[in-house]
Design a protein around this nucleic acid. Structure first.
Lengths: 233, 233
DNA sequence: GTATGATTCAAACGTTCGTTTGAATCTTCC
DNA sequence: GGAAGATTCAAACGAACGTTTGAATCATAC
């Protein structure tokens, strides 16, 4: 059949990775069975073990395929910005854009599975299974180190532990947005036409994250219910 | 044995719910098997089906037990604040505190399983399994409606769809913080002594979320990276 | 065309899953 | 103390799980 004729070389590997990406996102790692996965991919049940060795190795391969290039692109963009600035510190907003731009761009990518992957990624950040946790941590380590340094240079007045928590919060917002924006809907008012408009979403996110990152410390005590200071640095 | 003598009435139900809370959090719904669960609870394998009917019904019961009182407390606190304000609109910060206070307080609750539950809750928001999604959505619906109205009254100048997204982002930050703060560590710098200090965490969160909620629209062009249109509806 | 290695295939492996069963035990009330 | 219902228990159910196997089929070389 023609399908076989067109098959480049590692067609089977790619089909398995694509199907795994989508099914892991939909059903979780344990919920997506090998039989469901191989059926969706249109390959034999034994193909996963032949090409990847085991289901765990497949999980790792799914992340490797996208996460390494994604973080590399983030670092490249950050380098480009810093070179362009020529010694001057970057604005916090520019650093935020460098970090979230790559993952948000993948949301619009419906052709290949970029969209599936970023949603899978978002839900994996809260995955407590130790092997996956360490896998993700290892893949992010150098990128996070680099971005933390960039933020520290851009915000020299911000204490180190404050920066840690603000980055934690920013990452959480991005993670949840990637994972849950078109799945769980706790708040009424979502407009379906926004679903694939990653540009508008990115602007909203940048606004929110930049303001949060630059939040001023509470300059006075707050009461049990008293109002907050609404100034931003 | 004394243990049997003290057993109040629905001791078995409670032990199953406690074990389920912890194991669902650690291994996910599909990863936590009935045998592991009942062994940890110290009850017979058949006890879950006897008391709850099925594993799915147990999952629902786990959420019912905590989520209904939690959201009720949120609404009570919001009512109290509005009565106290006597017609004046609340500050956004006060509304934020009313929403996140209850769940953050549970983090410090190590005695019973409150801590386990909020972490389970945080990771469940990104769970795409449809029955669980609709279950959570149904349990949150009225609370979210009420808080959205409160925010709208506090921020009359904020467009409706802007408010939707800012609430979405705020909820995401809280969710990720509950789920991942002491599990996945992508950013170096976490101090273990902060782990149970929910007061300090709450202040940091309130600061971040309030700033994000009140973020002003980008009044001028943003930085170098991509000179896009900055306007948002 | 035929040997060689890579890949696919149907079938089966042993294990674990959620659930059910029916007898045994406990609790409650007269 | 004995009947009646609630609960617990060990054992088994069929189904689905990830993985393995060995033969069949493919691609590529000479």
């Amino acid at each position: 059949m023609t399908l076989r004729a067109v098959k480049p070389q590692h067609e089977t590997r790619r089909r398995i990775l694509d199907a795994a990406e989508e099914l892991f996102m939909q059903h979780g790692f344990e919920g997506a069975s090998m039989r469901l996965l191989t059926t969706k991919a249109g390959v034999n049940l034994a193909a996963v073990n032949y090409h990847f060795g085991s289901k765990d190795a497949l999980i790792e391969a799914v992340f490797q395929r996208r996460l390494d290039p994604m973080n590399a692109a983030r670092l490249t963009e950050l380098d480009r910005l810093e070179k362009e600035a020529g010694g001057e510190p970057l604005t916090p907003e520019a650093i935020i854009r460098a970090f979230i731009g790559e993952s948000l761009a993948m949301i619009e990518d419906g052709r290949n599975g970029g969209r599936n992957f970023v949603r899978l990624l978002g839900r994996t950040y809260t995955e407590p299974a130790k092997p996956i946790r360490t896998l993700i941590g290892r893949m992010y380590a150098s990128t996070m180190e680099r971005f933390k340094a960039a933020f520290a240079r851009a915000l020299p007045e911000l204490a180190s532990d404050e920066l840690f928590w603000r980055m934690h919060f920013m990452f959480g917002t991005l993670s949840y947005t990637l994972a849950a924006t078109d799945t769980v809907q706790l708040i009424a008012g979502f407009k379906p036409e926004d679903r694939h408009d990653s540009r508008a979403l990115q602007e909203r996110l940048v606004q929110f994250l930049t303001a949060g990152l630059l939040a001023s410390k509470p300059d006075s005590k707050h009461g049990s219910s008293s109002g907050g200071t609404r100034k931003a640095a």
